[in-house]
Amino acid sequence: MFLINCPYCGERDQQEFKAGGEAHIERPKQPTELSDDEWAEYLFMRKNIKGVQFERWNHAHGCRKWFNMARDTSNDEIKAIYKMGEKPPTQ
């Protein structure tokens, strides 16, 4: 059970949160100009990596804000938490 440091509320138990999948996948601005393959890439393809993964999380039973998390999927260590719109940490 993670202890997640919501950027708006502080440390809270994981059960207050909802995971929202891979982060930094931007919705295409002009979907109609994309080929089927390009659209499918946006719609379906996710990395699911072993190691540090950037994810979206939502403080669903709290402030309801979305934010990003860098998490090592091999040992569940939370490396960083940052707000929507912010760049992922490089390290």
Binding site: G20, R27, N58, R64, W66
Partner: peptide, 13 residues
């Protein structure tokens, strides 16, 4: 509501 909030906060802030 969750889905609409998601779009508002992340895609169309």
């Amino acid at each position: 509501l969750g889905k609409l909030e998601d779009y508002l906060q992340t895609e169309w802030p």
